Computed example of a mutant assay.
Amino acid sequence: MKLMTKLLTFLFTFLLAFSVSATDASMDSGLKSKAKRATDNGLRYLREQQDENGSWSGSVGITSLALRAYLESRRKYTEDDGPFITKPVQFLLSHVKEDGSISESINNRNYNTAVAITALQATGNPKYKQTIENGQKFLKGLQLDEKDGYKKDHKYYGGIGYGGDERPDLSNEYLAIEAMKATSLDPNDPVWEKALVFVSRSQNNSETNDLKWAKNDGGFAYMPEYSPHGDAVSYGSMTHAGLISLLFAGVDKNDPRVQSAFNWIRANYTLDENPGAKKNQGLFYYYNAFAKSMYAFGEAEVTDSNGIKHNWRNDLTEKLLGLQDKDGSWVNPDSPRWWEGNKNLVTAWAVISLNHVIR
């Protein structure tokens, strides 16, 4: 009996040690410690920049992202931690409109509402349930379909735009999909199937895209037939946004759309630039989408098309550590397009990226 007990104890200890080592193998422990410190420094910078009304840059969108950075951090901040959390929540609630949108601007209502309900959900506070559900309804209402006179064969069918622009795009689509996933929208809601029509038509995959424009590299454009970097070129930030959209909408990892997107990522693996984009444009947006899509895909390593293995957590941490300023902030000084000259926005994106790395 004693021998059996010793054997069981040894086996349990061995399995526990193996489990810990297998988990730790997904990221260098030294880099993980540095990533934790970097997030703390980034959050400290954001707190120093917070306006008296609790917002960052007076923007619903940026405030939502900064709030999410706090709530999803390893520190697990909550409203109990004080005004630096409760004030931004109240700032968001003060911009709730009758139609369910949450925005200070009519031109960015989808973007702002999507990131706002994602942040409110992250509080875990049931008081915001109705506000979140109203936000979901608003996002669903923006989706172009039969109610708007769009038939299923139209290239924009199922798409969602900024909310003030009639043209949908994959960036806004992915943010809406992420928000509806985060807020546990019914997986049987028709919005998912319609969204996948638009997402699939934004992919350069002629085998699964029923529109003639598509090439066959597996990456994603900004919208069907168009990218801001020329023609309908595939590029990094949108390919990761497309991959997230497919996975969050319930598409299996073995689906050819997912596999072709991942193969594009393998063939274009880099963190030195937003691959396929004009120099340094959307760089931190790319890092943010990269972290979220790799986390959702669930593989610790990416083997590129040359057979070289990359630990994406280590790679992204090293890149972000090298770009963080001494004050704890991040910014894109080479390309301020798409607000990447705003330190509050870029710092929030970077912290959210590292939060996914640390998990």
Rank of each mutant, 00 (worst) to 15 (best):
N172C: 07
L283W: 10
Y150T: 06
E318P: 01
T118Y: 12
A69V: 07
P224D: 00
T183L: 09
D169T: 08
M180D: 02
R109D: 03
I308P: 07
K155P: 13
A241S: 01
V60R: 01
K36T: 15
K309Q: 12
E225K: 14
S101D: 09
N332C: 07
M4W: 03
K76L: 14
F91D: 05
L144V: 09
H310I: 04
L170E: 06
S19E: 11
K326T: 05
H240R: 04
V20D: 10
W339H: 14
T208Y: 03
S101R: 05
W330A: 13
D327K: 03
D327N: 06
P228S: 01
M1G: 14
I308S: 12
N110K: 06
F18R: 02
I244T: 06
Q203A: 09
A300I: 00
W339K: 13
Y157V: 09
D252E: 06
S21L: 13
V331F: 10
L142A: 00
T131F: 13
H154P: 07
V20P: 03
P190W: 11
G54R: 04
K152S: 11
P83I: 15
L170A: 07
S21F: 12
V115G: 04
P228D: 00
V191I: 12
R75F: 07
I308Q: 14
I160E: 01
K326P: 00
L142K: 02
E98G: 11
S55F: 10
N125C: 09
F284P: 08
V20G: 04
A176Y: 02
D153H: 00
K253T: 15
Y45P: 07
G218Q: 04
P275G: 11
N134A: 02
Q143H: 06
A289N: 09
D231V: 07
D327V: 09
N205E: 03
G124Y: 11
Y45V: 00
L243T: 10
Y269M: 04
F297P: 04
E98Y: 01
L139I: 14
L3E: 15
A214K: 06
N216H: 13
D145K: 05
L67R: 05
V258T: 13
S335L: 02
S227G: 01
K129A: 12
F18K: 01
D186R: 01
I85K: 15
E52M: 03
N254D: 08
V331P: 13
N204P: 13
K97R: 14
N288T: 08
L46M: 11
S94Q: 07
G250Y: 06
E178L: 15
I106L: 10
M1N: 08
Q136L: 13
E166F: 05
G42S: 02
D80Y: 12
D231H: 08
T78H: 08
G282T: 07
A35F: 06
Q281K: 13
I117Q: 05
Y286T: 00
H240L: 15
Q136F: 11
N263L: 14
R68D: 03
L243W: 08
A17N: 11
Y70G: 02
G341P: 10
S260D: 14
T317W: 08
G149C: 12
L283Y: 10
A261T: 09
H310P: 03
